[in-house]
Design a protein around this nucleic acid. Structure first.
Lengths: 228, 228
DNA sequence: TAAAAAAAAGAACGAACGTTCATATTTAAA
DNA sequence: TTTAAATATGAACGTTCGTTCTTTTTTTTA
């Protein structure tokens, strides 16, 4: 599966995400009309990603956000209780995207190697599709407890596949927890250093392919190459 | 070489770094006595790393820095022109540490595989020794031009070793630029996610060893394993 | 078209920020 | 010990921040 296929199957847009945020926060958001709210939420998120890309969320002023969105300061506060809440909303939604996706892919394969490939690739493709969400979630989530537990969660998924695969003789023995960590680090590379790959003219498919090659060389037991 | 040996050979302390900063900025720093200046600079750097670890440098107030260092607000401004300059000083010094080290290790090996191993390991060990500097430099250096060119520089070093090694038949053919990127991503993992490895009880030697195993499996040409 | 509801606007407020500077304290020199 | 230089202090300043709230504008309903 390449990125093009993935996008067709996945069928979720930034607008869908904004709609989800609206419905999850109807109690807080003071706007009644869904269309208006979703429209403005999309504007807000885009502006936040844009402004905080260079200097971080803390350095983004509400006045800058007002200017970038074209909304007044007063209007903005109809969509969140305060600046910190805005950050929380984005983070929570970001993790939700990642989590839901991983669980969907997990169910769609049984063979450990196929499953591992699918999980790794899906994550890379998803981070391409929602790069600003991924970038923001990583960069603004420093020492937060919820973030650590989510990192643990997604890492455990990879670890479990590797452990299960070793039992079946598909993967070499090894410290699977460490391997899972390394895989995660390489996945993150894609959305953290976009400028680099743009410059080198490397596509997301090339990147994912290279990552799969690395994992195959290190993890796959001898004589299993036919499965690749 | 393990971390213990590395530390013995490297022989640079946080105090040495502070002294270097003082000597490089004698024009700006208003304090005449080296001992006083170096002492306070060390206090300042430690406090900056401590406070900005959780919420970032932007969120650190000068008053918080004053409290943590035990120095008055006025005193602090004898060591840097302004808050932004303080950040620049730390970043520049951070990159300087990385650059000097890499160049030293480069000269100490000729065989490509030995050289690759030495460069990768040295970087991981160095990031362990000066983790706060590495963490700060990565997290606070977002879209800055100087940072990108430094990232390019260190990546090019890895790429060149891989290309040279392929010519000599030591390494498999492949997209070496991409491989270098992946290696860098895994190196960064060590200082960005310290909490994870502390929790898993994984030492820097274990981590470096695992990374070397991955690189060996992916890069080393068949029949070269004897060198490892 | 008139009344009611919803949404947008932006001036105003207090708090917190980075920075300065006149003064006090400490250290070194005479 | 006295004098001069170096260093430390923290109140005060102007600015900018996040946030609120009354008013205006727009949209919907009757």
């Amino acid at each position: 599966m390449d990125y093009k296929e993935f996008k067709k199957i996945y069928e979720v847009s930034n607008r869908d995400i904004s709609r989800e945020v609206y419905r999850n926060n109807k109690g807080i958001i003071l706007i009644k009309k869904e269309k208006t709210a979703v429209n403005n939420l999309e504007k807000i998120f885009n502006a936040v990603f844009n402004i905080s890309y260079k200097k971080g969320f803390q350095a983004m002023s509400m006045r800058a956000l007002s200017q970038k969105t074209g909304m007044s300061l007063g209007s903005l506060y109809a969509y969140f209780k305060g600046k910190e809440d805005l950050q929380d909303i984005i983070q929570i939604q970001g993790w939700s995207i990642i989590k839901k996706d991983l669980e969907k892919v997990l169910k769609s394969h049984n063979n450990p190697w196929e499953r591992l490939k699918a999980v790794i690739k899906a994550h890379v493709f998803l981070s391409e599709l929602f790069r600003p969400w991924f970038y923001f979630t990583f960069m603004e989530a420093r020492n937060i407890k919820a973030v650590k537990s989510m990192e643990d969660h997604t890492q455990k998924i990879l670890t479990n596949i590797l452990v299960e695969g070793e039992k079946q003789g598909v993967f070499k023995p090894g410290n699977h927890e460490l391997t899972a960590s390394m895989i995660k680090a390489m996945q993150q590379e894609w959305y953290l250093k976009r400028w680099k790959y743009k410059k080198l003219n490397i596509s997301v498919d090339q990147f994912a392919g290279h990552l799969m090659g690395l994992v195959e060389a290190f993890c796959l037991a001898p004589g299993q190459e036919g499965c690749a």
